[in-house]
Simulated assay, not measured.
Amino acid sequence: MRLLSLTALVMIAFAANSVLNRMAVHGAGWGPAFTGVVRLSSGAAVLLVMALGTKGWRGMRMLPSVAGAGVATLFLYIYGFSIASGLIDAGVGALTLFGMVQITMFGGALVLREPISLWRWIGAGLAFAGLAVLLAPGSGGQHLDPLGFGLMALAGVGWGLYSLNGRRAGDPLVASALNFALAVPLALIWLGVARDAGQGAAWGWGPALASGAITSGLGYALWYRVLPQIPASLAAIAQLSVPILAALGGAVLLAETPTLRFWIAAALVLGGIALSLRKNRPKAR
């Protein structure tokens, strides 16, 4: 029950990220690169204080290969996510993001030869059906900006790889702190090339800092703590609840009203997650 509660808390943090970033980039008019720098810097500051306070300087260690993969995939996610947040709705963006996460992590589970139960395959298929219903063309369908969709899909690949890497990262707090801190220089280079600092409304600081320090920094540290305790395939399916939560947040804070199609898709996605949690009964002898 405790593991389930922690996983649910992480999913809420991920959904809040979608809403908060869209508020900063689309609502307040902030540049994606500047939003990414603020998000990474504030997350790094909070995580480093916590990690140093509990582990000390001697405890700030991580294998170079794990750190390199973590920083690269985190920045790939931040880059695609920050730009795409200004181009597509929070719910649809989260749907695209975690659809690609699902594909990436299931692929990783197959590569790692992790056993995947029949119920988990059925649950994943049902959840994917829900995504297809939400994005299918026709009455009530969503039009996706091609660039926004492509960049959000790229972010999904980055996040899926980041999640897989987290299973071998060791201490979750130290790993998250180092990943965020080492990704900041990459974001500053991006900001220097993009030159999008100093634009947008001042209130954008609120959602940008909240996204960085709370729902990203603390949320990702908690995610790295949960990941080693659950299979990669189950982690992928659990994250399919995020688009539903993000769409609800978008409806409340951004006036992005869910349609009947959304609720049908939500039922399929959440039903798929529920089925994936079932265990195969042992065969009778």
Score class of each variant (00 low, 15 high):
residue 1 M to E: 04
residue 1 M to T: 10
residue 5 S to D: 00
residue 9 L to Y: 04
residue 9 L to W: 05
residue 10 V to W: 07
residue 11 M to E: 13
residue 12 I to H: 03
residue 13 A to R: 06
residue 15 A to H: 07
residue 17 N to F: 07
residue 18 S to Q: 06
residue 20 L to A: 13
residue 20 L to E: 10
residue 21 N to L: 14
residue 22 R to Q: 14
residue 23 M to T: 11
residue 26 H to P: 00
residue 27 G to E: 06
residue 29 G to Q: 11
residue 30 W to G: 09
residue 30 W to Y: 07
residue 35 T to F: 13
residue 37 V to A: 09
residue 38 V to P: 09
residue 39 R to F: 08
residue 40 L to A: 12
residue 41 S to M: 13
residue 43 G to A: 09
residue 44 A to C: 12
residue 46 V to I: 15
residue 48 L to V: 09
residue 48 L to K: 04
residue 50 M to L: 15
residue 51 A to F: 00
residue 51 A to Q: 00
residue 56 G to L: 02
residue 57 W to Q: 04
residue 58 R to I: 01
residue 60 M to W: 00
residue 61 R to S: 12
residue 63 L to R: 15
residue 64 P to M: 10
residue 66 V to P: 00
residue 67 A to D: 00
residue 67 A to M: 14
residue 69 A to L: 14
residue 69 A to C: 11
residue 72 A to V: 15
residue 72 A to Q: 06
residue 75 F to G: 07
residue 75 F to M: 13
residue 78 I to R: 01
residue 82 S to C: 12
residue 82 S to A: 15
residue 82 S to L: 11
residue 84 A to R: 06
residue 87 L to F: 07
residue 87 L to S: 05
residue 88 I to Y: 02
residue 90 A to P: 05
residue 95 L to G: 14
residue 96 T to S: 11
residue 100 M to K: 04
residue 101 V to P: 01
residue 101 V to Q: 03
residue 103 I to V: 15
residue 103 I to L: 15
residue 104 T to D: 08
residue 105 M to P: 01
residue 105 M to G: 03
residue 107 G to D: 05
residue 108 G to V: 07
residue 115 P to K: 11
residue 118 L to V: 12
residue 122 I to W: 07
residue 123 G to I: 04
residue 123 G to C: 10
residue 128 F to K: 00
residue 132 A to M: 14
residue 133 V to T: 13
residue 136 A to W: 14
residue 140 G to R: 10
residue 144 L to Y: 06
residue 151 L to V: 09
residue 154 L to W: 10
residue 154 L to G: 14
residue 160 G to D: 09
residue 164 L to K: 01
residue 164 L to M: 15
residue 164 L to S: 06
residue 169 A to L: 08
residue 172 P to F: 07
residue 172 P to L: 05
residue 173 L to F: 06
residue 176 S to I: 05
residue 181 A to W: 03
residue 186 L to P: 06
residue 187 A to Q: 03
residue 192 G to M: 11
residue 193 V to C: 00
residue 195 R to Q: 15
residue 197 A to E: 12
residue 197 A to N: 07
residue 201 A to M: 11
residue 204 G to D: 08
residue 205 W to V: 08
residue 206 G to L: 15
residue 207 P to T: 10
residue 209 L to S: 09
residue 210 A to P: 03
residue 211 S to V: 03
residue 216 S to K: 01
residue 225 R to M: 11
residue 225 R to P: 00
residue 229 Q to G: 00
residue 230 I to P: 10
residue 233 S to H: 12
residue 237 I to K: 05
residue 237 I to E: 04
residue 237 I to C: 02
residue 238 A to T: 05
residue 238 A to P: 00
residue 240 L to E: 02
residue 241 S to P: 03
residue 243 P to I: 08
residue 243 P to R: 04
residue 245 L to Q: 13
residue 246 A to M: 08
residue 249 G to Q: 11
residue 251 A to Q: 01
residue 254 L to G: 06
residue 260 L to Q: 13
residue 261 R to N: 10
residue 261 R to H: 03
residue 262 F to D: 05
residue 262 F to Y: 12
residue 264 I to D: 00
residue 269 V to E: 07
residue 279 K to Q: 14
residue 283 K to E: 13
residue 283 K to Y: 01
residue 285 R to P: 13
